[in-house]
Design a protein around this nucleic acid. Sequence first.
DNA 1: CGATATTACTTGGACTTCCAACTATCTGTC
DNA 2: GACAGATAGTTGGAAGTCCAAGTAATATCG
Lengths: 166, 166
Amino acid sequence: MVRPLPFDPIEEAGRQWDQRWSGSAAMQAATSIMRAQQIVLARVDDALKPWSLTFARYEVLVLLTFSREGTLPLGKMGDRLMLHQASVTNLVDRLEQQGYLRRVAHPTDRRTTLAALTAEGRAIIDEATAAVVKASIGVAELNNRDQQDLHRILKKLRSGANDFSN
Amino acid sequence: MVRPLPFDPIEEAGRQWDQRWSGSAAMQAATSIMRAQQIVLARVDDALKPWSLTFARYEVLVLLTFSREGTLPLGKMGDRLMLHQASVTNLVDRLEQQGYLRRVAHPTDRRTTLAALTAEGRAIIDEATAAVVKASIGVAELNNRDQQDLHRILKKLRSGANDFSN
DNA sequence: CGATATTACTTGGACTTCCAACTATCTGTC
DNA sequence: GACAGATAGTTGGAAGTCCAAGTAATATCG
């Protein structure tokens, strides 16, 4: 557990940083992102505990739900989720062990493995999503305007990181 | 390595999400935060490679630099960096092994361990910071206005997560 | 003063992420 | 058609994060 402070540590770090170096606004932005990620992750993970899921594994299931057949090649999932192949292998291992999906052979390309939602996986995803939405997906303090501003600003960052072309 | 997509996967996820559930703006904001953190982390870690440092360990050294004596109790570092005690122990272990700091006994409270910058730790921090600043602390695409907006919006989130009192 | 509670840190385990190396399978070219 | 190169996935290892439990030392309170 982390104890609350009587002051904002990122504001304080900005003051100290300014006394020695330049770029404190960038430092505060970067540090805020790092911390915000921890907060969102902890909240969503907490909301998903009833299903023994984590945000990472939940996202895999959601992505499969988005596909018509409930089936996708592992590589394609890595692309969409912006995850390394090894991370996908890991997540699929665990989800398979939990019975939420299973690995299926690709009909024509024997290199490819498909992840396929099981009935159980399909059954829980709406409940789990209801819990995640109830937890405001970890961003309860932000109104719609804030959420959109955030998305817009971070899109610049992601675009520059080659997350998508153009 | 992650392959770039011809479209923004977060925009696409928003479209799909809207067809089934509510709260897609929150989902996009949360997902953007998760992804932005990965990007910033990868960039800063990359900039710190010449010193075999990571963002996490670098922040420990910066925090020590901010203290007059270059010395802080591990617990206080955890509070400021918003990290669990176990994470601080881990980071201090590694930094001690690298010779950038050492553990020192607290003069009066024998429960407490102080982390103290070594001469080497003090010597590299300015160079390392120059490299990090040169990498725009991972947020090169954001202008000053964006950086401040981001900081302001995420502060709401952090405040609600009890990072600091009011 | 002594028992209890609190605080500080460490340890072991779980999870996620990455990278590098490896196997298996396709693809494309000569 | 055979061989080189690309692609798909897995494995092992490193790093960071957390939690829960454990040890040691200090504080509190009856």
